[in-house]
């Protein structure tokens, strides 16, 4: 497999006696949108945090951009992380900074960007999520959905090669959620990015997924396209797609 962006082999992770990831193996091809489905608490957020080294794994092996995560030193890990965008489930905006400063924060490491370019990037990123008007507000003055979208703008501002979305459309109305799904697709096409998308939103999964993986009890139980899985023999799997 030469064009693998992520390769996960036999990853295990427990918190004390709580085994969250029992045995996960999966891979992500270049330019692919992979959707991960699973019940609440099944370890989806933990899995993508392991992918960027935020949570150390107990066993197994994770390779991102053909680099073994466990073999990287702090400096190399930082360099790798700059190629990855991460949207947190909770948006994780910096409370003490305005929306503009939040978006500028990931840009601070690249010395080559001058002020006008930076302003242009910020405005463009906010326009993508339809929030140009809130640029000088603090996160505490925004609604939950707006925060989510600002978080998305911050994730996308560096045009990362790999994007990990943790529930990008949760808490949004169907129209905005649809727009976000479109945006995810558009970014994939435009920059040939690869993405892992965690979602409970069937509509979003239908739109963006090239492939879907369903996780149960810390291990993948099914994989396939939206059409395949939604017509699955297994009633439990079908139930994710609101069909019985």
């Amino acid at each position: 497999m030469k064009d693998c962006v992520i390769e996960i082999t036999h990853v295990k992770k427990s918190f004390g006696s709580n085994c969250v990831l029992a045995d996960i193996s999966l891979n992500l091809q270049k330019g692919e949108n992979l959707v991960i489905l699973g019940k609440s608490g099944s370890g989806k957020s933990v899995l993508i945090k392991c992918l960027v080294g935020l949570i150390p794994i107990d066993e197994g092996n994770i390779r991102v951009f053909n680099q073994d995560l466990s073999a990287l030193n702090a400096h190399e890990l930082n360099a790798l992380r700059r190629k990855i965008g991460f949207l947190f489930q909770s948006a994780a905006l910096y409370d003490s900074m305005t929306v503009r400063e939040n978006l500028e924060f990931p840009l601070r490491i690249s010395k080559t960007i001058n002020n006008t370019e930076r302003d242009a990037l910020v405005t463009e990123a906010l326009k993508n999520v339809g929030l140009e008007t809130v640029i000088d507000k603090l996160p505490s003055e925004l609604s939950g959905g707006m925060r989510k979208r600002v978080g998305l703008a911050r994730t996308l501002i560096l045009k990362p090669e790999l994007i990990l979305y943790d529930e990008p459309t949760t808490g949004l109305d169907p129209i905005t959620a649809g727009e976000i799904s479109e945006l995810i697709l558009e970014i994939q096409k435009k920059y040939n990015t690869s993405s892992v998308i965690i979602t409970h939103d069937v509509e979003c999964a239908r739109k963006v997924a090239n492939r879907i993986i369903i996780i149960k009890d810390g291990a993948p139980v099914a994989t396939g396209t939206f059409a395949q899985l939604s017509e699955s023999e297994d009633a439990w799997i079908r139930s994710f797609f609101n069909k019985n």
Binding site: R82, F86, F88, A92, Y94
Partner: peptide, 12 residues
Amino acid sequence: TEQIDAMEVSGI
């Protein structure tokens, strides 16, 4: 609120 994690993943 995961803000420290967010800084870490943005390479800072």
